[in-house]
């Protein structure tokens, strides 16, 4: 009974925690972008504007939820839920601290990859269902981009799997007790970072939405809470990729003992979230063909080479 209660507490805690973090990122992102662009940023609602999140939420909830008459209604409604669902499902396998994990699957990493590959549907379907040229272009771009970068994402993680000898996330963290995997797997880390940005279609690689050329791409036709789902889904995606980087390459909850493990995890995760925001503040959007050729001609061979070398080293030491 007690164990069941603890499990339920963990599930509720992870769900509420991640959604709260994702909502809080609305404020954090705007404030940090302002800080890096020498602006003041949100400062109206509450002290330092920290209630901006609430204001934004109220705004999104009370906006008219308009479904245009020309859209494919069912698919239009389903599409935004997919991203929330797939990302929240992925959080189930993230070990936040020893024992604090919703489902300690033995194929945890594969589960993450599976869920992130399902995330591609949200872009494709919303782009198609909107029945709008710009949305369709965004959907087509999104599909091609996400499928391509999933390949390198999976391959870049294989080095970690080889070193840890398991797909289980907890075991991967425990295997990093001696040395974080970012040192032997630096190439894998860089590739995973880039693929993670492309997978969450964050700003340097936000070609599916590319507001300067496609208006808002796949979510041009969305309003109200349906748009909010895309919005929060994107922030959830950032949180997910940051926590995956933390778990896979930076030792998860491991750290000196003067702080509890969960705090170490959160510190590492938030520094990666901030790095994502810094990336958005800095880099311009590449051209679409540049993005694809960068992926297929540079990252794919690099990822394959990484797997090959890691495999050889592991085999040699075996």
């Amino acid at each position: 009974m007690n164990e069941t209660l603890a499990q339920i507490l963990i599930i509720v805690g992870v769900l509420l925690g991640t959604v709260t973090i994702a909502a809080g990122l609305i404020y954090v992102e705007r404030k940090m972008l302002a800080v890096w662009q020498q602006r003041l940023g949100p400062n109206r609602v509450g002290p330092f504007g920290i209630f901006q999140v609430l204001a934004d939420m109220v705004k999104i909830f009370f906006k008219e939820d308009w479904i245009p008459p020309f859209v494919d209604k069912k698919v239009f409604v389903i599409a935004p839920t997919i991203i929330m669902l797939s990302v929240l499902m992925s959080f189930a396998i993230v070990p936040f601290a020893p024992g604090v994990v919703v489902a300690d699957l033995n194929i945890g990493l594969l589960f993450f990859l599976a869920m992130s590959s399902l995330g591609a549907y949200t872009i494709v379907l919303s782009g198609w269902a909107s029945n709008n040229k710009y949305s369709l272009l965004g959907g087509v771009r999104g599909a091609a981009q996400m499928i391509s970068y999933e390949v390198f994402m999976g391959l870049s993680l294989m080095g970690v799997v080889l070193l840890a000898g398991s797909f289980n996330m907890t075991e991967i963290v425990n295997a990093q007790k001696g040395m974080w995997f970012v040192i032997p797997q630096f190439v894998g880390f860089v590739i995973f970072l880039i693929a993670g940005i492309a997978e969450t279609h964050r700003l340097p690689f936000d070609l599916p939405e590319a507001e300067s050329e496609l208006i808002a791409g796949f979510h041009s036709e969305y309003s109200g809470m349906k748009f909010g789902m895309f919005f929060v889904g994107e922030y959830l995606g950032i949180t997910l990729v940051s926590s995956m980087i933390t778990v896979l390459f930076f030792g998860g909850w491991l750290g000196p003992a003067f702080l509890p493990p969960i705090v170490w995890f959160l510190i590492k995760m938030f520094s990666f979230i901030l790095f994502f925001i810094l990336l958005r503040a800095t880099l311009p959007r590449p051209r679409y063909d540049q993005l694809m050729s960068y992926g297929w001609k540079l990252l794919l061979p690099l990822a394959l080479l990484n797997v090959l070398v890691t495999g050889a080293v592991v085999l040699y030491n075996h």
Binding site: L110, L113, A114, S117, L118, Y121, V124, L125, A143, I147
Partner: peptide
Amino acid sequence: AALEVIVYAGAIMVLFIF
């Protein structure tokens, strides 16, 4: 099961819809 989702549901069906 994981490969089924990654390869079939995730990649091939996206290409179909594409």
